[in-house]
Design a protein around this nucleic acid. Structure first.
Lengths: 199, 199
DNA sequence: AGCGCTATTGACCGAATCGGTCAATAGCGT
DNA sequence: ACGCTATTGACCGATTCGGTCAATAGCGCT
């Protein structure tokens, strides 16, 4: 009936519905996502979705609330080493992606979206996900380890582009492969950002 | 009426139609793109599109043919320095993006697409765009300049992720800004990939 | 067994949108 | 005045949309 009903779903089915919604909304945006598509992807019928969510819009915001809650709960502090903090961030992201595939894409697409439906949520998403993440994860970072001319924003941009590019290049990779390969690329990038004494 | 009519369009309107099609198909894929959406974005009426293209499918393949032709025409050879070749590639990409915004996204989305409509085009796109580009641009590259453990594929991945990440971060940047900023990031990456004697 | 409550769905609704057409108009060279 | 092309508002049948409903399936309680 209403939003609260959603939490009563059995775990496995709830996860399926969540992930289906995340994936579809992330892929096609709000308007171009059909409820029946989410239902099919989740392996349930369309009326069932309307039994747990009051409407398509309600489903959208409900997924958002869930994602915000999940992300902030998983967030934890970083260390004084930038790349250790990056590793922590990557690990959090991997955990999240494994638990709820598509959730990260959903939040990302929301921030980028120009759909009016997303406008109100963008600020909260941005604040909750990236600002909070950056603050918590990189607060302790010892910036004196960077080469001259490298500030933390530059470093963060470079590193995130590399890791995102790597993950985007092939979505069907094993967790182990991702971790070792990302480490390899981070090692390369590290030589570009850190003073030699900290390598 | 048929595909050939398309070339008779006045330049400005042709460009508008092309870019609108590129942007829409890239954003939503073949199935979820409405012809009326392309028409609206291009600032023309829907019947006009069906006057120049025989069908929606015809428009899709026509855009593809145009993009392939455009890309291969703009392609030119690189140098023995990897980063000079990268600069050439970036410049080609910038030229293309300025001439036909969305075209690059269109080709990229096509390669990534899992829609059956795209299946036949993917191989040609892949071959025409990336293989040919890599062959021409990086054939002359002197690989001995790389640090030990860095091969050209690794270097190419890193560099392309960084530049794509930068471009993706904000689509509304001036050409000058992009070139200088990309150069800055490439300078940083260069220290990670090149032996010191070649910096 | 019987009752009550929830989970679940096939079938269906009116409304909107889809790809595509057509007849009519506007414009332009001759 | 003619012919030809460019251009579009209005429209078509078909499909898909978000959402509903009545009916069924399943499970806990007595």
């Amino acid at each position: 009936m209403n939003t609260d009903n959603f939490s009563r779903l059995p775990d496995e089915k709830r996860r399926a519905v969540l992930c289906a919604g995340f994936a579809c909304f992330a892929k096609d945006g709000y308007k171009k996502t059909a409820v029946s598509e989410i239902a099919e992807r989740a392996g349930v019928s369309k009326p069932l979705l309307f039994h747990y969510f009051e409407s398509k819009r309600g489903m959208y915001t409900c997924l958002f609330e869930f994602a915000i809650r999940e992300i902030t709960e998983r967030m934890r502090a970083g260390t004084e080493d930038f790349f250790e903090s990056i590793a922590i961030a990557t690990d959090i992201k991997m955990e999240t992606m494994r638990a709820f595939p598509g959730m990260d894409d959903f939040m990302f697409s929301l921030i980028r979206s120009r759909e009016p439906e997303a406008a109100e949520l963008q600020k909260r998403a941005n604040a909750a996900q990236y600002k909070a993440a950056a603050d918590l994860l990189f607060q302790k970072v010892d910036r004196s380890r960077f080469k001259d001319g490298i500030d933390i924003d530059t470093a963060l941009s470079l590193v995130s582009w590399v890791s995102e590019g790597y993950l985007r290049a092939d979505a069907d990779k094993e967790r182990e492969t991702v971790l070792t390969e990302i480490n390899r690329y981070m090692g390369i990038v590290k030589t570009a950002l850190y003073k030699e004494e900290y390598l």
